[in-house]
Amino acid sequence: MRTTTAGDVTILLPDLDPDDLDPVTDLPDDDIRDGLVQDVTWRGRQIEDQSIRGCQITAADLGEITWEGGTLYGCEISRTDLSGAALTGVTIERCAITGSRFTGTRLIDVRLKDVLFDNCRFDYATLSRVSAAGSVAFTDCTLAHGTWSSCRLAGIALRTCDLSHLELDSCRLDGADLRGSRLHALAAPLDDLRGVVLTEDQLPDLTRMAVDALGIDVRTDSAADRNH
């Protein structure tokens, strides 16, 4: 059993042997199991209620795919382009996704459990009603300029990620570990950050958010003001 740890989050990872996998080049109409998917181009294809299980996907072009329903289970995905893709109602479980691109991707009603995103780009991505049903970690990821709304991501790890200009709306991040992440210009209601874990050097960014949220007028006293 393979596991990895990010902060206090332990994730169960897939344990695949490429020698046990069968090469897959064309996108079939039914489920894909135990497949070795390398250097394929499925850009703009549509997937509906399909399951992809026990597969290794490497250097694939899955940009602008539309995937509704179905499951991604026990897969390793690396150096794959999913930019502009739309995933709706998909369950992602026991997967390791590394060095992949989700720029402008839309995840809607997606359920995550035992998922690691490492060194991935989610810039300008939209997450709506995404939920963590188990351990989830983003490590060394770029999440800048994204929009997350109505997500339930309590207890996830967001370690050493770029969260600058990320916008949160009605999200639950209770206990989320944000240590080491860049929070510059993070836009979030204070309630969305209730219970998150930070380091001391991240407090100035949190203070700025609190000042903005409360409409506090911060002024510098002039010498004339101090003399009266």
Rank of each mutant, 00 (worst) to 15 (best):
Q202R: 01
D109K: 07
R172G: 06
G63N: 11
D221E: 12
D15I: 00
R79W: 11
A210Y: 13
W148K: 01
E76T: 12
Y124E: 15
C141T: 08
V136D: 07
G69T: 06
R33A: 12
G155P: 09
T142C: 08
P28E: 13
G104T: 09
A224K: 12
A137Y: 01
D8N: 14
V115A: 10
A96Q: 12
D26I: 00
G134W: 06
E68H: 11
G99Y: 04
G84P: 06
V110M: 06
C120Q: 10
D8H: 13
D221S: 13
V130T: 15
T98D: 02
A6R: 09
P23H: 09
D123G: 03
V115M: 06
A157L: 09
A185W: 07
T126P: 04
I216Y: 08
T105S: 09
L203I: 15
D30T: 14
C141G: 10
T105L: 06
A125I: 04
G146E: 01
S128I: 02
V115H: 02
R106G: 00
C141H: 09
L82Y: 07
G7H: 12
T3P: 01
I92G: 06
R194V: 07
T41E: 14
G215W: 04
D212F: 03
T139Q: 13
D205C: 06
R121F: 05
D20P: 00
A125K: 07
G70A: 13
P18M: 08
S222W: 10
S149Y: 02
T199Q: 13
T80H: 03
A60L: 12
S131H: 03
E93Y: 00
E167Y: 07
S78K: 12
K113R: 15
I32M: 15
G146R: 04
F117M: 08
V24N: 02
A210S: 11
D49M: 05
D17Y: 00
T80R: 01
A176E: 05
C55N: 05
L127P: 00
L186R: 04
R226A: 14
F102G: 03
T5H: 11
A223E: 15
A86Y: 06
F122V: 01
R106Y: 05
D118P: 00
N227W: 05
R179D: 10
R2W: 09
P14M: 02
G63T: 05
C151N: 10
I156M: 13
T220Q: 14
C151F: 04
L153Q: 08
D34V: 00
A86F: 05
C120Y: 06
D30S: 14
V9F: 02
R2E: 12
D26Y: 01
E76A: 09
S150Y: 08
C55V: 08
E64Y: 09
D114I: 00
T71I: 13
G35L: 03
D140V: 04
T142D: 15
T139S: 15
E48Y: 07
T126N: 10
A213L: 03
D225T: 03
R172H: 15
L190F: 13
R111L: 13
V211I: 15
E76H: 07
P14T: 06
A96G: 08
V115K: 03
T139A: 14
L72S: 12
V196D: 08
L153E: 07
